[in-house]
């Protein structure tokens, strides 16, 4: 299964996202709540966020996917508030316990799964510095999530990803 988390408008999603089976899509319904830093997803309901707004089960989907594709407007070299919110709310894909990976402390995996992480950043006036920050952050995300590195794409318009995603 491929999992796509995006911040596209419904019209953009209709145009850009591939239609084949085996794809799960997480979109912005305008009702997502932000992580409050309670760590309940680790010590109260392990593996699932305690906020029930429909976005609390994404970490279980991460455990089933072969590829995670994030499509996001680039904000300062990182993800948009919505895409980052979904990522923030699902840290329970990992365990609270630590391990050492590449000489640095990271969280142990809750699941054996190792998905490929691919990212499509779009936006006008992205600077080269922002692109460099974004590449480095995705590389860090890949290590943190114990995934494998996919492609990181940049485009001025989200519509330019149509060929990339099909």
């Amino acid at each position: 299964m491929k999992l796509i988390i995006h911040d596209l408008t419904p019209e953009q999603a209709e145009t850009i996202l591939p239609k084949q089976s085996g794809i799960r899509v997480i979109s912005d319904n305008g009702k997502i709540r932000h992580c409050v830093g309670c760590f309940g997803c680790w010590v109260k309901t392990p593996g699932q966020c305690v906020i029930h707004d429909g976005y609390e089960t994404v970490s279980a989907l991460l455990a089933q996917c072969e590829e995670l594709i994030l499509i996001s407007r680039c904000f300062y070299g990182g993800f948009s508030p919505f895409v980052k919110n979904v990522v923030d709310r699902n840290i329970s894909y990992s365990l609270p316990d630590f391990t050492i990976r590449n000489g640095e402390m990271h969280h142990k995996g809750r699941y054996d799964n190792r998905f490929k992480l691919s990212v499509c950043f779009y936006g006008e006036n992205m600077t080269e510095t922002e692109r460099q920050t974004a590449r480095e952050m995705v590389q860090a995300n890949t290590v943190n999530l114990n995934g494998t590195a996919g492609e990181v794409h940049f485009a001025e318009r989200a519509e330019d990803f149509k060929g990339v995603l099909s």
């Binding site: 990182g78 508030p81 919505f82 980052k84 919110n85 990522v87 923030d88 952050m137 860090a140 943190n144």
Partner: peptide, 14 residues
């Protein structure tokens, strides 16, 4: 937060 800025702060910064 996951190698970056928490989403609520991104909203504020924007």
């Amino acid at each position: 937060y996951v190698d970056g800025i928490p989403s609520h702060l991104l909203n504020c910064m924007a």
